[in-house]
Amino acid sequence: MAPAECEATYKVLVLGDSNVGKTCIVHRYCDQTYYDTYISTIGIDFKQKIISLDGTPIKMQIWDTAGQERFRTLTTAYYRGAMGILLMYDVTNQESFNNLTYWLKNIEENASPDVIKVLAGNKCDAVSQRMVEQDMGQKLAENYDIPFYEVSCKQNINIDKIFLTLARHIREQRSYQQLTEREHYDSGQNGNITLDLKSRILEHTSLKEPWKCTC
């Protein structure tokens, strides 16, 4: 499928502590490959995959980040235009779960306020080494109102599902935005625009159209 036929491009960031399996999940999803170890990501890496979202071709542009970049060095350039975030921890590593709150704070401070988030607990195949129970992840996800899956790159569990969930939510979000934009246009015609709505839409247009020519 040629990229030009794609209906839309969804930019997705993969975030989480070092060694939770971010590069691994991206390779599993985009290339259907799996290795036990991956070279550490420095800065950011990039892959893309064209998927069929209920019959519509969509380009998933996935940005794989470095785990140690939690603070500051994750420059705004990375966050710019991100529509979805796959936040990851490792069920065999308690620390990576504990740090999720910092990651969520980081997202809140830097990403678009309506960015779609999903939470993944990786390495759920490693039964004997598990440190974080599934209901812990579930509870956290409910608190933040984000979808949650335990996944395994090694055994290819829930990988497609979690990306598809992300893509669906992004699509919903976008159609909602288009709707409000149309409302905005209509109400603008009638001169009834509210300040609140206006500012929200300005935000959308600046954040969601990052690939346009800026010259």
């Binding site: 939690r70 603070f71 500051r72 740090n99 980081n106 401070e109 830097n110």
Partner: peptide, 16 residues
Amino acid sequence: GYFPANMKTTMNNTEN
């Protein structure tokens, strides 16, 4: 080796 957890993470003003 970790950065202070309670640090504000906005990085617009100070560039790396």
